[in-house]
Design a protein around this nucleic acid. Structure first.
Lengths: 348, 348
DNA sequence: CTGAAAGCGCTTACAG
DNA sequence: CTGAAAGCGCTTACAG
């Protein structure tokens, strides 16, 4: 491997100074069209590429963003929630579009918060994805803020929290689910997910669901509210608990598609028909939702838009541009498929 | 935000020279225990972190690896193959374990090969994942090799190709599937996937399957070999074509789990029972395989091991250490679930 | 529009 | 074991 050309080599061959090479390559308006063309031509011929380390060091920024993806400590390490992976994809694309590189790091919640990407100048800003327990993380957010680290979270807006957040309007999603199920004349409801403030996204979905039912005179009993984390296995076992309760239910709102898949499996194994005996609704609209049997009615989160908002808001933060907080609440969309009965086959 | 401390600040407070600070922080044996402790203590107090750009520039390496994830151009951009995403996860973890950062880039096959991570010194080496058509990519590999770029591919070992590859023993996986189906007394076989040299991974699976059948006197007809890319939708449509052929079949080997999910859906919609009428086998063992109905018998690729091999082989390449090529062929594992009938419930 | 020069914050021979 | 000094390859005032 021949050693790489530097801007001095280009300068030499192009017959200009090194400063001019640098300007020409970054399309500075200070350089004449003619010079620029010549320099860029020579650079191309020598396969010259600007050394990022040098330019980052000099310019004091890295043109790089970092994503921290927190793993649910209870889930199998080889299976990261596909929803976050899909977010990862859209974030990557959004970064590329803005000319930023993306550093990725998976962290288990127990990790000692290795968020030193900003401090080591490896990244200009950080995107936090899927950290589990929001309450536990508040102190860490505070520390990041104090250090002046630029970061934005995907998740739920916790009241009074100063960090910048982008999320789906989970409450409204829960409302849509309740309305849909009520329209289908379902009478007895169950919720499977974590209905506590520790998982505010699930909690908001739960609240939107429960309150809408309540407003229309239907009560969601505590016995029909079963805790589950976002895995198929957890949904499966939670449903077995629900069945063991011997309560009545003809509709289940699962806080995520992964949970819903486990729910359907447990129901079918118990000899119940979905949707005839029980309607099931999920949340996320993973690819697999369309191919479950029956196809899963669910609430779609727009991950493409989410990735774009996360990146553009973070970039605004980095450039000290005020961020329009309202833009950070993304509208959910109810996708009706076959798992609730009634007006099935409507979409999807 | 107060401006970051530099090694000179630490030197000042610790009462030593800046060079000593640098040595102490990288645990150089040249520095005394006492001095090191003092320096590290001061560094911690001032929340000092080494500036990566500066140290990378000076040391002429980046301690960063890049992953290039190629998207299937025909697939929906928001849904990246979960298998690769799972690989991404294990690669990330393997990098972290070795003290390397990971840069991620998604590329559409049509992209002008933005693999300049190495040339710009942003990464010391590159991991190539999921590029679609291997034959089309040969010239690009050649160029990378010529430029002295260190890279390793996940995929299939193409004869005579000089690039370093890590992959599952796909041929052996196909053999296992044929044997299993034969043991279950299946008579008429079908394959759904891309049985061409353009997708060598699928092709190897196909070959292992077909040859094993052939050796035992069973022929896999061309009419029962249907082309599909690795999506549920493609598997679904391919199965509809297969059904339209009006040929006999009581067992389908789908080249991936995603395809298998589409296969099962199409079969069930056509009123066929899986596994009673038709056995179905997939490949990959995605999380969803366990939760399909019936649970999917499949061939597991060990993504954790794969990620580790990819990273460690790339690191060897970077350090000019000879790589044990035999270590790069990972053993597949047949996971028997309910989708083939017979000895179901064995595992999983 | 162009060039000479300083300097980003480190690592690492070199000298002691 | 420690320090003074050079230099990695750029960007960007400054002067012309």
């Amino acid at each position: 491997m021949k050693s790489k050309a530097t801007s001095f080599d280009i300068a030499h061959y192009a017959g200009v100074s090194q400063s001019t090479v640098s300007r020409a390559l970054r399309n500075s308006p200070l350089v004449s069209e003619e010079t620029r063309l010549k320099v860029q031509q020579v650079a191309k011929k020598l396969n010259y590429k600007i050394d990022k380390n040098a330019s980052n060091l000099r310019a004091q920024h890295s043109s790089t963003l970092a994503v921290l993806l927190f793993e649910d400590p209870t889930s199998d390490e080889s299976n990261i929630n596909p929803f976050f992976l899909s977010m990862l994809g859209s974030i990557t694309r959004a970064c590329a579009k803005q000319g930023y590189d993306l550093l990725v790091s998976f962290q288990s919640a127990s990790d000692d918060w290795h968020a030193d990407y900003a401090e080591t100048h490896r990244a200009d800003g950080i995107i936090l994805l899927g950290y589990g327990d929001y309450i536990d993380y508040q102190p860490r957010f505070k520390r990041l803020l104090e250090e002046g680290t630029k970061f934005v979270c995907w998740g739920a807006q916790v009241d009074g929290s100063p960090e910048l957040t982008v999320c789906c309007d989970n409450y409204s999603g829960g409302e849509r689910v309740a309305e849909h199920l009520l329209n289908l004349r379902r009478k007895n409801f169950a919720f499977i997910g974590d209905a506590s403030e520790h998982s505010p996204e699930f909690y908001e979905r739960f609240l939107g669901f429960k309150n809408t039912l309540q407003n229309l005179g239907v009560k969601l009993s505590e016995r029909n509210t079963i805790r589950a984390i976002s895995t198929e296995a957890s949904g499966y076992h939670a449903t077995q608990s629900l069945l063991a309760n011997n309560t009545d239910f003809d509709a289940i709102f699962a806080a995520s598609d992964l949970i819903a898949i486990g729910v359907i499996k447990a129901l079918q194994e118990a000899g119940l028909n979905v949707p005839n005996d029980v309607s099931v609704v999920g949340f996320d609209d993973l690819a697999v939702a369309r191919f479950s049997l029956p196809p899963l009615t669910t609430v779609r989160q727009n991950t493409t838009l989410a990735g774009q908002m996360l990146v553009s808001n973070l970039l605004s933060l980095i450039d000290d541009i005020p961020v329009d907080a309202s833009s950070a609440l993304l509208p959910p969309q109810l996708i009706v498929r076959g798992s609730c009965g009634g007006e099935a086959n409507a979409q999807g």
